[in-house]
């Protein structure tokens, strides 16, 4: 077994333009939120995200227009936490910047 511990900055450096990321957790639950927030500090773009319910960590990447496609069954933050504001911003209206591919 090889040791793989690294800093958050080093880990986000692994993400390249155009990559498809599966986002863990669900809605507001056990989402890798700080990892996504760290990605907003980098110029990475044209990301695609997928998950049964990608949640707030994915929403962050749409809010900055760094992600352009979401594969999902449910994309919201659930009840008190509301709809996904970043995803809506990127996908609604006459000139959407992102695309939905719903799978379930």
């Amino acid at each position: 077994m090889r040791e793989k511990v690294m800093s958050l900055s080093q880990a986000t450096d692994l993400i390249q333009d155009g990559m498809l990321l599966a986002i863990g957790g669900n809605a507001m639950h056990r989402n890798p939120t700080l990892f996504s927030l760290a990605l907003t500090q980098k110029p990475v773009k044209e990301l695609k995200v997928c998950g049964a319910a990608p949640g707030i960590a994915a929403d962050i990447l749409f809010s900055t227009f760094q992600a352009d496609t979401a594969y999902f069954g449910f994309f919201g933050l659930e009840n008190e936490a509301g709809l996904a504001p970043g995803m809506r911003k990127a996908m609604e209206g006459d000139e959407p910047k992102a695309r939905a591919v719903e799978g379930s």
Partner: peptide, 24 residues
């Protein structure tokens, strides 16, 4: 569950949360 209003599926007025398994 997907979209309401707007021009079409890719230009919605409201982008909803999606079927969340209901289509399956």
């Amino acid at each position: 569950m997907s979209v309401l209003g707007g021009k079409d599926y890719d230009h919605p007025k409201l982008r909803g949360p999606g079927g969340a398994g209901s289509a399956t």
